[in-house]
Structures are given as structure tokens and as C-alpha cells.
Simulated assay, not measured.
Amino acid sequence: MNECMENEIMQQDLEMLVDSDLPITALEGKSVLVTGATGLIGSQMVYLLACYNRMRNLQIHIIAMVRNEEKGKKMFSHLIGRGDVELLVGDINRPVVYSDSVDYIIHGASATSSKYFVSNPVETIYTALDGTSNILKFATEKKINGMVYLSSLEVYGTPEKDADLITENDYGYIEPLSVRSSYSEGKRMVECLCASYAHEYSVPVKIARLSQTFGPGVAYEDGRVFAEFARCALEQRDIVLHTQGHTVRSYCYTKDALSALLYILISGKAGEAYNVTNMDTAVSIKEMAELVCETIGSGKIKTVIDIPEDLASFGYNPEMIIRLDSKKLMQLGWKATIGLEEMFERLIKGMKK
């Protein structure tokens, strides 16, 4: 039985990863806890590890931690029935209760919506700090072999205007009195917490600084910019930008992000951070919109600038240029495989399904 029964594009990606030379043997016969297991990255990690079990018989025990039991059962019931996945229902804001052994942790549970960061900044901060503190305490108790924390490019804040490629040692400015900084500052503090646990308690936790990541599996109603662009192409609607679209970022395809997380989990150095991005995808928001209009939209739609008066309520970051350098990750053996245009093509094919 396939892992992604409703998304053949995602299934193709998973099977390509299983057929690749990822350093996965360390996980054979081990227990892996995935938090945020109903999220975009968490769910695909659960599917990927289950795909390894089916195709390579690695007998990985996958513990999918979910807050919403109904949603978890809907996503993973076929794998629970198959025996690959165990559902652990719980909120990371409370101590994790699990009696059996855990060897590895992939910690992806987090607030993800920009509008939520603005409307619920206190909850955004506490979910980051208290939630990850509970996971790290649990990791210490279980004497795990490895853990990866899913951080974000937002820890870099706003770089200097003349900044070149951003390495893991470069940091820009974050305005601490802006409620939108609840996410960025929360991620920064949690990274320090992870490094502190690695130093003081020898917890083998590593940090993955993900650029914006998308591909098949993104929900049709997702509020992030790439999903809106994809919907516009599918519905043949003009793309409306609420800023001038000058912000430049680099992006990463979901399949490439999954492989990066496994490289970092297994081969990364405890207490250190790794940028996860396709360095060839650095593009401005406006350029990305125009790419989608011309290629995916076949030139039948156009990009429109319409800046609202209540712009702050949208939760957008300040305009910036931030091109991540992923050479440190590449030194572990990882490489990006999918470019921006193909990322959108596969995202849209997945949405159609």
C-alpha cells in the first residue's frame, strides 16, 4: 500500500528519495519521534520513513506526535493499520508522556502562519520556548541518538543591504518590540536552548534553518505566498501583490528539505546549525509572481500591485534581500535537485490531485 494514497506526485518524490543514496541505515530498527506530524514537513517525513520500511524493510518504528487526533488518524490510518506508525496524541506545550524507547527526534511542531504571529504573539513565543523545552527534556530522559530542530531563515532578521550570501554565522537586525518578531525571536531563543542542551547535557541536537519550502502536499487553502501564486495559476486569476515585491529569498523543494533533514539528523554536528535551501532559486517576490504568470499561467494572467492601508495586519516581514548559503550542508553530502519552476509545476500537479 502506497504511503500517499491521494497524491501521486508526492509518492513519486518519496520513492525517488528511497532509491537515492541517503545515509539512512543508522535509522534501521530504531524508533523515530516526529513532532508536528500533520504539518507539511512532518507528515511527509512520516510518509518517507514508512516508504523506507515498505521498499527497504528498515523496520523503523515511527511515532507521529499530533495535537489533533482526528486529523492524525485521517492522515495516517492506513499506516497505523499497516503497523508502521504509532500515533502519539499530545500538545508539546505540556510534558511529553511516552513509556517506550525513542532513538531519534525530528521536532517540527511550531506556529507557521504570519497572521497568527501577529494576532497571537504570546502563544507563538511560548509554543516555541515551552514546547521545545519539553521536547529537549524528553530527549535528555530518553538518551536519544540524534535530534533535529526545524528552525527558519527568519533567525537572520533583516541583513545589511550590501550583504552577500548568508552563512550560518551571519545575523541581521530583528526589531524586538514588533509583535511580528514573536516568531523570529522565538526561533533564535530556541536555537540557543538547543545549543545549551547540547553543551550542558550532551543532547545530540542539530538545527536546520529552512528557507521557505514547498511542493506537493501544500494544502490548497494555504495562506503562504507560493500557495496563493499556485492558486492564481490554477484559477487563471491575476496575482495581486500587497507590497512592491522587492523582498528576495531563496527556496527549497519539499523532497530536498526531507533529504536535508536526514543528513543533518544523522551526519550533522550537535549544537550546530545548517542552512537548508536551493541556492539557485534566489528571486524577488515580484520576479516569482512574474515567473508563475508567464510559465505556469501561460501568459494569460498578470501581476498586479495593490498595497492596502492596513498592511501591518497581514504580518509581512520588512522588505529585504536574503540569499542563504547552503555549502555547510552540502559538505555533509546533500544537494538540491529541483529548481523553482519545477517546484511550482509539481506543487500545482499535487494541488490538482
Rank of each mutant, 00 (worst) to 15 (best):
V292C: 06
E200K: 11
S267R: 12
T132K: 01
A219C: 03
V203R: 04
S152D: 02
A109G: 05
A233D: 10
G339M: 11
A109N: 09
Y316Q: 09
K73A: 04
N120P: 00
N169G: 09
N7I: 09
V218P: 00
N57T: 09
A336E: 13
V18Q: 12
V190S: 02
V304W: 11
D19Y: 09
E175M: 07
A64H: 09
I60R: 02
E228C: 00
V276S: 04
K137V: 12
G271T: 05
E185M: 14
M5E: 12
L136A: 07
P216G: 09
L87N: 12
D21C: 10
R237S: 07
D103Y: 09
G29C: 13
G217W: 05
Y220F: 15
V96P: 03
Y253M: 06
L22G: 10
Y197N: 04
E154F: 08
I41E: 03
Y263P: 00
A289I: 03
G268S: 06
T112V: 15
M75Q: 15
E287M: 04
M288P: 06
G131R: 03
E191V: 00
L40C: 05
K71P: 08
L347P: 00
I239M: 11
S151E: 02
G223E: 13
C51G: 08
K142T: 12
P204W: 03
E191N: 04
Q331L: 11
Y251D: 09
L177K: 14
K73E: 15
D21M: 10
A282P: 00
V34I: 15
L79Y: 04
R82N: 14
V122F: 13
S211I: 00
G157W: 10
S114H: 13
I174V: 13
M189G: 00
Q331P: 03
D21Q: 14
S182P: 05
V155H: 00
F229C: 08
V122E: 10
L33T: 12
D170Q: 12
E8T: 15
T254R: 13
I9Y: 14
I135D: 01
T277L: 05
A282I: 10
I166R: 00
I264H: 10
D310F: 06
Y173H: 14
E342R: 15
D91N: 15
K352H: 09
A336Y: 14
L33R: 11
M16S: 15
I135R: 01
M343Y: 03
N53A: 07
A37K: 10
L258F: 09
L340K: 13
L40R: 05
V89T: 15
L311D: 01
G333K: 02
I41A: 08
N145T: 11
E290G: 04
L153K: 11
C51F: 05
V205H: 02
S284Q: 05
Y116A: 12
T112R: 03
A260T: 07
T281D: 08
K161H: 11
R188D: 01
R237P: 00
